[in-house]
Design a protein around this nucleic acid. Structure first.
Length: 311
DNA sequence: AAAGCTCCCAACCGCTCGTCT
DNA sequence: AAGACGAGCGGTTGGGAGCTT
Protein backbone atom coordinates (compact mmCIF):
# COMPACT_ATOMS: atom_id res chain seq x y z
CA UNK A 1 0.00 0.00 0.00
CA UNK A 2 1.68 3.21 -1.00
CA UNK A 3 0.52 5.70 1.58
CA UNK A 4 0.81 9.44 1.29
CA UNK A 5 1.01 12.17 3.90
CA UNK A 6 3.46 12.86 6.65
CA UNK A 7 5.76 10.35 8.23
CA UNK A 8 4.23 7.81 10.62
CA UNK A 9 3.69 9.05 14.15
CA UNK A 10 5.63 6.19 15.67
CA UNK A 11 8.61 4.15 14.66
CA UNK A 12 7.22 1.32 12.60
CA UNK A 13 10.44 -0.15 11.29
CA UNK A 14 10.10 -3.88 11.34
CA UNK A 15 6.44 -3.83 12.20
CA UNK A 16 3.80 -5.70 10.24
CA UNK A 17 1.24 -3.78 8.23
CA UNK A 18 -1.83 -4.70 6.30
CA UNK A 19 -4.15 -7.60 6.96
CA UNK A 20 -3.89 -9.44 10.22
CA UNK A 21 -2.93 -13.10 10.17
CA UNK A 22 -4.68 -15.74 12.21
CA UNK A 23 -1.66 -16.03 14.47
CA UNK A 24 -1.66 -12.32 15.18
CA UNK A 25 -5.37 -12.40 15.96
CA UNK A 26 -4.85 -15.29 18.32
CA UNK A 27 -2.06 -13.54 20.12
CA UNK A 28 -4.03 -10.36 20.51
CA UNK A 29 -7.21 -12.04 21.72
CA UNK A 30 -5.33 -14.25 24.13
CA UNK A 31 -3.37 -11.37 25.56
CA UNK A 32 -6.32 -9.04 26.02
CA UNK A 33 -8.49 -11.70 27.57
CA UNK A 34 -5.79 -12.46 30.11
CA UNK A 35 -4.39 -9.04 30.81
CA UNK A 36 -6.82 -6.52 29.39
CA UNK A 37 -5.68 -3.63 27.26
CA UNK A 38 -4.61 -1.03 29.77
CA UNK A 39 -1.87 0.36 27.59
CA UNK A 40 -2.22 -0.05 23.86
CA UNK A 41 1.24 1.27 23.18
CA UNK A 42 2.86 -1.32 25.39
CA UNK A 43 0.58 -4.13 24.34
CA UNK A 44 2.40 -5.19 21.16
CA UNK A 45 5.67 -5.60 22.98
CA UNK A 46 4.11 -7.45 25.90
CA UNK A 47 2.10 -9.75 23.69
CA UNK A 48 4.88 -10.34 21.20
CA UNK A 49 3.05 -8.74 18.30
CA UNK A 50 4.94 -6.95 15.56
CA UNK A 51 2.28 -4.26 15.27
CA UNK A 52 1.89 -0.76 16.56
CA UNK A 53 -0.49 -0.25 19.45
CA UNK A 54 -2.84 1.73 17.33
CA UNK A 55 -3.21 -1.11 14.90
CA UNK A 56 -3.86 -3.54 17.77
CA UNK A 57 -6.51 -1.30 19.21
CA UNK A 58 -8.27 -0.95 15.89
CA UNK A 59 -8.16 -4.68 15.22
CA UNK A 60 -9.62 -5.43 18.63
CA UNK A 61 -12.34 -2.80 18.51
CA UNK A 62 -13.41 -3.35 14.94
CA UNK A 63 -13.05 -7.07 14.57
CA UNK A 64 -11.95 -9.21 17.49
CA UNK A 65 -14.03 -7.81 20.32
CA UNK A 66 -16.43 -10.55 21.40
CA UNK A 67 -19.53 -8.38 21.41
CA UNK A 68 -19.22 -7.38 17.78
CA UNK A 69 -22.40 -7.91 15.85
CA UNK A 70 -21.90 -9.75 12.61
CA UNK A 71 -23.95 -9.81 9.47
CA UNK A 72 -25.68 -7.26 7.34
CA UNK A 73 -27.33 -4.19 8.75
CA UNK A 74 -31.05 -4.54 9.18
CA UNK A 75 -33.39 -1.98 7.73
CA UNK A 76 -34.05 -0.72 11.23
CA UNK A 77 -30.36 -0.25 11.89
CA UNK A 78 -29.98 1.58 8.60
CA UNK A 79 -32.86 3.84 9.47
CA UNK A 80 -31.39 4.49 12.88
CA UNK A 81 -28.08 5.43 11.29
CA UNK A 82 -29.78 7.80 8.89
CA UNK A 83 -31.71 9.44 11.69
CA UNK A 84 -28.72 9.66 14.00
CA UNK A 85 -26.57 11.04 11.24
CA UNK A 86 -29.18 13.69 10.62
CA UNK A 87 -29.00 14.62 14.30
CA UNK A 88 -25.31 14.18 14.98
CA UNK A 89 -23.50 14.48 11.67
CA UNK A 90 -20.33 12.44 11.14
CA UNK A 91 -20.01 11.56 14.80
CA UNK A 92 -19.52 7.90 14.04
CA UNK A 93 -18.50 6.85 17.50
CA UNK A 94 -21.57 8.52 18.97
CA UNK A 95 -23.80 6.85 16.40
CA UNK A 96 -22.09 3.55 17.10
CA UNK A 97 -22.78 3.91 20.79
CA UNK A 98 -26.48 3.90 19.97
CA UNK A 99 -26.22 0.71 17.95
CA UNK A 100 -25.02 -2.05 20.25
CA UNK A 101 -22.53 -4.36 18.63
CA UNK A 102 -21.77 -2.09 15.71
CA UNK A 103 -18.46 -0.26 15.38
CA UNK A 104 -17.90 3.30 14.27
CA UNK A 105 -15.83 2.05 11.37
CA UNK A 106 -18.57 -0.28 10.24
CA UNK A 107 -21.19 2.43 10.44
CA UNK A 108 -18.96 4.88 8.65
CA UNK A 109 -18.43 2.35 5.86
CA UNK A 110 -22.13 1.67 5.69
CA UNK A 111 -22.89 5.33 5.42
CA UNK A 112 -20.29 6.05 2.77
CA UNK A 113 -21.04 3.03 0.61
CA UNK A 114 -24.81 2.68 0.88
CA UNK A 115 -26.76 5.20 2.85
CA UNK A 116 -25.23 8.37 1.46
CA UNK A 117 -25.89 7.24 -2.10
CA UNK A 118 -29.35 6.09 -1.23
CA UNK A 119 -30.26 9.40 0.33
CA UNK A 120 -28.73 11.30 -2.57
CA UNK A 121 -30.73 9.39 -5.14
CA UNK A 122 -33.84 9.79 -3.04
CA UNK A 123 -33.37 13.55 -2.98
CA UNK A 124 -33.03 13.60 -6.73
CA UNK A 125 -36.40 11.91 -7.13
CA UNK A 126 -39.27 14.33 -7.68
CA UNK A 127 -41.37 14.72 -4.58
CA UNK A 128 -44.48 13.85 -6.58
CA UNK A 129 -43.34 10.27 -7.00
CA UNK A 130 -43.22 9.72 -3.28
CA UNK A 131 -46.04 8.37 -1.23
CA UNK A 132 -47.73 11.07 0.86
CA UNK A 133 -46.44 9.78 4.20
CA UNK A 134 -42.85 9.81 2.95
CA UNK A 135 -42.76 13.55 2.71
CA UNK A 136 -42.98 13.85 6.48
CA UNK A 137 -39.73 13.56 8.30
CA UNK A 138 -40.20 15.11 11.68
CA UNK A 139 -40.29 12.59 14.50
CA UNK A 140 -37.48 10.12 14.60
CA UNK A 141 -39.44 6.93 14.49
CA UNK A 142 -41.86 7.91 11.81
CA UNK A 143 -39.06 9.31 9.75
CA UNK A 144 -37.10 6.16 10.16
CA UNK A 145 -39.94 3.96 9.17
CA UNK A 146 -40.86 5.91 6.10
CA UNK A 147 -37.26 5.91 4.97
CA UNK A 148 -37.28 2.16 4.60
CA UNK A 149 -40.83 1.66 3.55
CA UNK A 150 -41.03 3.32 0.20
CA UNK A 151 -39.99 1.38 -2.82
CA UNK A 152 -36.34 2.27 -3.10
CA UNK A 153 -34.55 -0.12 -5.39
CA UNK A 154 -32.43 -1.66 -2.68
CA UNK A 155 -30.85 -4.94 -3.56
CA UNK A 156 -31.27 -6.03 0.05
CA UNK A 157 -34.80 -4.78 0.30
CA UNK A 158 -36.16 -8.22 1.10
CA UNK A 159 -32.91 -9.83 1.93
CA UNK A 160 -32.70 -8.90 5.59
CA UNK A 161 -34.71 -11.83 6.79
CA UNK A 162 -31.66 -13.93 7.42
CA UNK A 163 -32.16 -15.48 10.86
CA UNK A 164 -28.42 -15.59 11.45
CA UNK A 165 -28.54 -11.85 11.86
CA UNK A 166 -30.22 -12.41 15.16
CA UNK A 167 -27.49 -14.52 16.60
CA UNK A 168 -26.25 -11.48 18.37
CA UNK A 169 -28.03 -11.93 21.64
CA UNK A 170 -25.70 -14.74 22.56
CA UNK A 171 -23.30 -13.71 25.24
CA UNK A 172 -19.78 -14.50 24.24
CA UNK A 173 -16.97 -14.88 26.67
CA UNK A 174 -13.56 -16.36 27.11
CA UNK A 175 -13.46 -19.45 29.18
CA UNK A 176 -10.56 -21.51 30.35
CA UNK A 177 -10.92 -25.04 29.21
CA UNK A 178 -8.81 -28.17 29.53
CA UNK A 179 -8.86 -29.07 25.86
CA UNK A 180 -5.58 -30.87 25.59
CA UNK A 181 -4.47 -33.63 27.95
CA UNK A 182 -1.75 -31.69 29.73
CA UNK A 183 -2.26 -28.22 28.48
CA UNK A 184 -3.82 -25.21 30.06
CA UNK A 185 -5.51 -24.19 26.86
CA UNK A 186 -7.75 -21.23 26.32
CA UNK A 187 -10.43 -20.91 23.75
CA UNK A 188 -12.85 -18.24 22.72
CA UNK A 189 -16.16 -19.75 23.61
CA UNK A 190 -19.68 -18.69 22.99
CA UNK A 191 -22.09 -19.45 25.76
CA UNK A 192 -25.41 -20.14 24.15
CA UNK A 193 -28.02 -19.07 26.66
CA UNK A 194 -30.74 -20.99 24.87
CA UNK A 195 -28.98 -24.30 24.70
CA UNK A 196 -27.24 -23.72 28.03
CA UNK A 197 -24.08 -24.90 26.45
CA UNK A 198 -20.66 -23.48 25.84
CA UNK A 199 -19.03 -24.11 22.54
CA UNK A 200 -15.85 -22.83 20.96
CA UNK A 201 -16.84 -20.05 18.63
CA UNK A 202 -13.42 -19.44 17.19
CA UNK A 203 -10.56 -21.85 17.05
CA UNK A 204 -8.54 -19.44 19.06
CA UNK A 205 -6.91 -21.62 21.57
CA UNK A 206 -3.61 -20.80 23.08
CA UNK A 207 -1.54 -21.72 26.03
CA UNK A 208 -1.23 -18.94 28.56
CA UNK A 209 2.14 -17.66 27.40
CA UNK A 210 0.47 -17.03 24.01
CA UNK A 211 2.38 -19.73 22.18
CA UNK A 212 0.03 -21.10 19.57
CA UNK A 213 -0.82 -24.72 19.90
CA UNK A 214 -0.14 -26.34 16.54
CA UNK A 215 -3.16 -28.61 16.86
CA UNK A 216 -5.46 -25.64 16.58
CA UNK A 217 -3.78 -24.33 13.51
CA UNK A 218 -4.20 -27.71 11.92
CA UNK A 219 -7.86 -27.58 12.81
CA UNK A 220 -8.08 -24.38 10.82
CA UNK A 221 -6.76 -26.26 7.85
CA UNK A 222 -9.39 -28.93 7.91
CA UNK A 223 -8.92 -30.88 11.08
CA UNK A 224 -11.53 -32.30 13.40
CA UNK A 225 -13.58 -29.47 14.82
CA UNK A 226 -15.48 -31.66 17.20
CA UNK A 227 -12.36 -31.89 19.32
CA UNK A 228 -12.75 -28.18 19.99
CA UNK A 229 -16.08 -28.48 21.71
CA UNK A 230 -15.54 -27.79 25.36
CA UNK A 231 -17.65 -27.90 28.44
CA UNK A 232 -18.27 -25.22 31.02
CA UNK A 233 -17.75 -27.85 33.63
CA UNK A 234 -21.35 -28.05 34.74
CA UNK A 235 -22.68 -31.53 34.98
CA UNK A 236 -25.98 -30.65 33.39
CA UNK A 237 -24.28 -29.55 30.26
CA UNK A 238 -22.17 -32.63 30.10
CA UNK A 239 -25.25 -34.78 30.43
CA UNK A 240 -27.04 -32.86 27.74
CA UNK A 241 -24.05 -33.08 25.46
CA UNK A 242 -23.90 -36.79 26.02
CA UNK A 243 -27.60 -37.22 25.40
CA UNK A 244 -27.63 -35.24 22.19
CA UNK A 245 -24.44 -36.85 21.04
CA UNK A 246 -23.05 -36.39 17.62
CA UNK A 247 -25.97 -34.49 16.15
CA UNK A 248 -25.25 -31.37 18.10
CA UNK A 249 -21.54 -31.55 17.41
CA UNK A 250 -22.07 -31.75 13.70
CA UNK A 251 -24.50 -28.86 13.87
CA UNK A 252 -21.88 -26.79 15.55
CA UNK A 253 -19.21 -27.91 13.13
CA UNK A 254 -21.39 -26.73 10.27
CA UNK A 255 -21.86 -23.37 11.92
CA UNK A 256 -18.19 -23.00 12.64
CA UNK A 257 -17.20 -23.99 9.12
CA UNK A 258 -19.61 -21.45 7.79
CA UNK A 259 -18.24 -18.77 10.09
CA UNK A 260 -14.75 -19.52 8.91
CA UNK A 261 -15.79 -19.68 5.29
CA UNK A 262 -14.54 -23.22 4.97
CA UNK A 263 -17.67 -24.45 3.23
CA UNK A 264 -20.71 -23.07 1.49
CA UNK A 265 -23.42 -21.50 3.56
CA UNK A 266 -25.74 -24.09 5.00
CA UNK A 267 -29.46 -23.73 4.62
CA UNK A 268 -29.97 -24.90 8.15
CA UNK A 269 -30.22 -21.48 9.75
CA UNK A 270 -33.96 -21.96 10.05
CA UNK A 271 -33.34 -24.52 12.73
CA UNK A 272 -32.45 -21.77 15.15
CA UNK A 273 -34.97 -21.60 17.89
CA UNK A 274 -36.67 -18.40 16.93
CA UNK A 275 -38.91 -18.07 19.94
CA UNK A 276 -36.12 -18.37 22.43
CA UNK A 277 -34.08 -15.85 20.49
CA UNK A 278 -36.92 -13.39 20.81
CA UNK A 279 -37.32 -14.11 24.50
CA UNK A 280 -33.65 -13.42 25.09
CA UNK A 281 -33.75 -10.24 23.08
CA UNK A 282 -36.65 -8.99 25.20
CA UNK A 283 -34.76 -9.73 28.41
CA UNK A 284 -31.72 -7.97 27.04
CA UNK A 285 -33.91 -5.02 26.16
CA UNK A 286 -35.27 -4.72 29.70
CA UNK A 287 -31.80 -4.75 31.14
CA UNK A 288 -30.62 -2.22 28.61
CA UNK A 289 -33.45 0.17 29.33
CA UNK A 290 -32.26 0.40 32.90
CA UNK A 291 -28.65 1.03 31.94
CA UNK A 292 -28.82 3.16 28.82
CA UNK A 293 -32.09 4.70 27.66
CA UNK A 294 -30.64 6.03 24.41
CA UNK A 295 -29.26 2.73 23.24
CA UNK A 296 -32.36 0.98 24.40
CA UNK A 297 -34.53 3.17 22.25
CA UNK A 298 -32.80 2.01 19.11
CA UNK A 299 -32.44 -1.52 20.33
CA UNK A 300 -36.16 -1.66 20.96
CA UNK A 301 -36.73 -0.73 17.34
CA UNK A 302 -34.66 -3.66 16.22
CA UNK A 303 -36.29 -6.17 18.48
CA UNK A 304 -39.81 -5.08 17.78
CA UNK A 305 -39.33 -5.48 14.06
CA UNK A 306 -37.52 -8.76 14.19
CA UNK A 307 -38.81 -10.96 11.37
CA UNK A 308 -39.26 -13.85 13.79
CA UNK A 309 -42.43 -12.10 14.76
CA UNK A 310 -43.09 -12.12 18.47
CA UNK A 311 -46.01 -9.81 18.02
C1' DA B 1 -12.94 -18.29 -19.88
C1' DA B 2 -10.70 -14.16 -19.33
C1' DA B 3 -10.22 -9.37 -18.86
C1' DG B 4 -11.92 -5.20 -17.10
C1' DC B 5 -14.70 -2.79 -13.89
C1' DT B 6 -17.12 -1.74 -9.57
C1' DC B 7 -17.93 -2.01 -4.92
C1' DC B 8 -16.98 -3.15 -0.20
C1' DC B 9 -14.59 -3.01 3.95
C1' DA B 10 -10.34 -3.65 6.76
C1' DA B 11 -6.79 -0.91 7.97
C1' DC B 12 -4.09 3.03 7.60
C1' DC B 13 -3.04 8.09 8.58
C1' DG B 14 -3.19 12.52 10.82
C1' DC B 15 -5.52 15.28 13.98
C1' DT B 16 -7.72 16.37 18.40
C1' DC B 17 -8.65 15.71 23.05
C1' DG B 18 -7.80 14.18 27.68
C1' DT B 19 -4.64 12.90 31.24
C1' DC B 20 -0.40 12.91 33.57
C1' DT B 21 3.83 14.92 35.30
C1' DA C 1 0.69 26.37 33.37
C1' DA C 2 2.61 23.88 29.91
C1' DG C 3 4.60 20.19 27.58
C1' DA C 4 4.57 15.16 26.69
C1' DC C 5 2.19 11.19 25.90
C1' DG C 6 -1.48 8.06 24.82
C1' DA C 7 -6.14 7.09 23.32
C1' DG C 8 -9.76 7.90 20.33
C1' DC C 9 -11.94 9.83 16.22
C1' DG C 10 -12.93 10.81 11.41
C1' DG C 11 -11.21 10.78 6.67
C1' DT C 12 -9.14 8.12 3.23
C1' DT C 13 -7.04 4.34 0.71
C1' DG C 14 -6.29 0.11 -1.76
C1' DG C 15 -6.65 -5.05 -1.95
C1' DG C 16 -9.65 -8.30 -3.22
C1' DA C 17 -14.16 -10.28 -4.09
C1' DG C 18 -17.84 -10.22 -7.10
C1' DC C 19 -20.00 -8.69 -11.25
C1' DT C 20 -20.19 -7.47 -16.13
C1' DT C 21 -18.78 -7.59 -20.77
Amino acid sequence: MGRRGRAPCCDKVGLNKGSWSLEEDMRLVAYIERHGHGNWRALPKLSGLLRCGKSCRLRWINYLRPDIKRGNFTKEEEDAIIELHRLLGNKWSKIASCLPGRTDNEIKNMWNTHLKKRLASRERKPMATQKPEDSQSSSSSSASRSCSDHGESKSDEEGNEDPSLYFTDLSIEMIEAPIGPDMDVWGVAEYDTHQEEAVVKLPYAVVPDTVIVPEFLSVMEGGDYSSLIVSTGEEAMEEEEEAKGEGKSSEWVEYLEKELGLCGASEEDDSINQESLMRDAAEQQMQMEEEDPVSSYFHKELVSTCPFGSR
